[in-house]
Amino acid sequence: MPGVKYSGRLSDAELAAVLPPAERLAQGPVAVIECVQSIPCNPCEKACPFGAITVGDDITALPALDRAKCKGCGLCISRCPGLAIFVVDASGDEATIMLPYEYLPLPAAGDVVDALDRSGKPAGTARVLKVNTAAGLEGTAVVTLAVPRKLADIVRNFRPRGRDAIYICRCNEVSEAEIRQAVREGARTVAAVKLATRAGMGLCQGRTCRRLVSRIIAEETGQHPAEVLPATARPPVRTLPLGTLAGGEDDE
């Protein structure tokens, strides 16, 4: 059962109503107001210095955004008590997302973090561009992330690395988020993910993570795990010092 009423995550139909069209996204930063229920609330209307947001006299009306007037300044983000407003800029090679953030620790500009989707699942890697904690924000920090362009409509939260990162390849410390991002960028096989992320190129040579990687690929692409993980193997099938093999029979 989709929809914010049943899952806390906006349904495709609800998203279609709030996401800007591709042409507008390509023109520069724009607010995305993910407010789909008629709750009595209107601070966003006053927050906009350009008059781009209208709620009207009936404050249970959904906010109407005039995307032509919206400059993507993000002043509305911290003013929304529901933390439901984001600003997305997909005009460049990578997209930026401004989002409200009320957790500790706060990231610093330059940090690499795991980008999360609307259900808290890792969607890829993000770079923190800016952390705004001005007093006027009343305790709601506004964080700007850089993410791959195709994640502009997907990323709505993030998780600092190190503390909670979920490692798939424990040899090379490749996180779940990095694997998912590689798949979303086109890697469809364990080998392709390996080339993109170095997952499976560590000491154990993928013996620990291969199954996990294949499961993520299956999940992301909708295939059956058996299709993704081919039953092939190459020697050596156990970890050996290379010299053991390099010596060859002739040296004996």
Partner: peptide, 9 residues
């Protein structure tokens, strides 16, 4: 466990 620092408080 005490909550010594807090994002809002």
């Amino acid at each position: 466990m005490r909550v010594t620092n807090h994002p809002v408080l």
